[in-house]
Simulated scan of single mutants.
Amino acid sequence: MEKVLEISDLHVSFKTYGGEVKAVRGVTFDLYKGEILAIVGESGCGKSVTAQSIMRLIPSPPGRITSGSVLFKGMDLTRLKEPKLRKIRGADISMIFQDPMTALNPTLTIGEQIIEGIMQHKPVTRQQAKKTALDMLDLVGIPNPLERLKHFPHQFSGGMRQRIVIAMALVCQPEVLIADEPTTALDVTIQAQILDLFKEIQKKTGVSIILITHDLGVVAQVANRVVVMYAGKIVEAGSRREIFYRPQHPYTKGLLNSVPRLDLEESELVPIAGSPPDLFSPPAGCPFVARCAYAMEVCDRAYPDKTHLSKEHHVDCWLQDERAIKMRVHVR
């Protein structure tokens, strides 16, 4: 498969009054053409910072990319000058932010906001841009798009605003779409509609999608591959089937066991005990060591090597070492 995006050994830090927060620590993954890649993990694990770093959207100061590369069409986005980056943002790589209300300008109509984005990146007339905007609103399921172009964000429901944000992100036909928690503020019914919309758009346009979420139910419905992050690192990655049916890292198992199960009688939520590590001073070994029921002495001293279990499935865990006692815990 063709690689669209290559992130290699990405490190991102934030300088604060209390010290340097090492938010992303050596993240490496690839995005392939036409796939949906999900990045999952609990709040504060570095998902959104990773996504924003791809487009160089982290505020600087205090944030900065200390090392690593983000390759797109042979260009390292971490080294590009701002004028060149502005041509790529929105045109080649687009992003959907968490809250659709704050992503839209409340003082401008929907039509003005979408048309402005088209004319910024495409050599078209205003009339041509308006037609493109109408076609995109129709694609994302906005009824009566000609009339709705004249409306302001507050005149739309939360689900409709999310559809408009998706339309704005796709209107210039980008190759990569980054969706940061796109269903968080929506009720369950609207979430399902938005997820169906993602799958439909992906099939029609062939766009490659990075989906940032903590909702494993969302991942199970749409993702082709899954990356599991914890304390700024990728601890496990694999196909959707491998992560859901053959998880190997104790953190991945903990995430799956903490999801409500409606298909099992008297199923109980099993929370992950403890708290994430302090990223002002990250541990030298596995960051999950303090919360892991299977932690060994070596886990606290050194970070584990990456173990490849299949072409797509890999995990960073000392339990994969042949000298370790194998876990006898299975996700129900």
Rank of each mutant, 00 (worst) to 15 (best):
D180I: 06
V235D: 05
R225D: 04
A273S: 12
F14K: 09
G44T: 03
V218F: 01
L80Q: 13
R241S: 12
P277Q: 04
T50A: 08
M75A: 11
R332D: 11
A103G: 15
Q52C: 15
K204R: 15
P276D: 04
M136L: 07
G26H: 05
L186H: 10
R241Q: 12
I65K: 06
P182Q: 02
K150I: 03
I7P: 00
A284V: 11
G44L: 05
A231T: 07
K306T: 14
A38L: 12
V289A: 06
K122F: 11
Q191I: 05
L264Q: 05
L149F: 00
I142P: 10
L197R: 15
A23I: 10
I325E: 14
K199D: 03
G285D: 08
D180N: 12
Q120L: 15
T132C: 09
L149E: 07
D215W: 03
T102H: 14
Q248N: 12
M296S: 11
K326S: 06
D215A: 09
Y245A: 07
R89T: 07
S281P: 02
E6K: 11
A231W: 08
E268S: 12
Q113H: 14
K199I: 14
V124E: 08
V218H: 09
Q162C: 13
H121T: 04
G285E: 07
K73S: 10
K33T: 05
I36C: 06
E116N: 07
Q221T: 07
V331I: 10
I58L: 08
T107I: 15
L177F: 00
Q193L: 04
E112V: 08
Q320C: 05
T252F: 11
R241G: 03
I58V: 15
A295Q: 01
V171I: 14
V70Y: 13
G232P: 05
R161T: 02
S157F: 13
G117C: 06
H313Q: 15
L85M: 14
T16D: 11
A129T: 00
L269I: 15
A103E: 13
E265H: 01
S281E: 08
K47I: 04
G217V: 09
G232W: 07
S267M: 05
G158C: 01
G158K: 06
I325D: 13
A185C: 14
I164A: 10
M95G: 01
M95K: 00
V289N: 05
L197D: 14
V289R: 07
R79F: 04
G63K: 08
P260S: 05
S94D: 10
I201P: 05
P62D: 02
R246S: 15
D9W: 00
D305Q: 13
V218T: 12
S267Q: 09
V331N: 02
A129W: 03
K253V: 14
S258I: 06
G238T: 06
M119L: 15
D9I: 01
T213H: 10
L269T: 10
L216M: 05
N105Y: 11
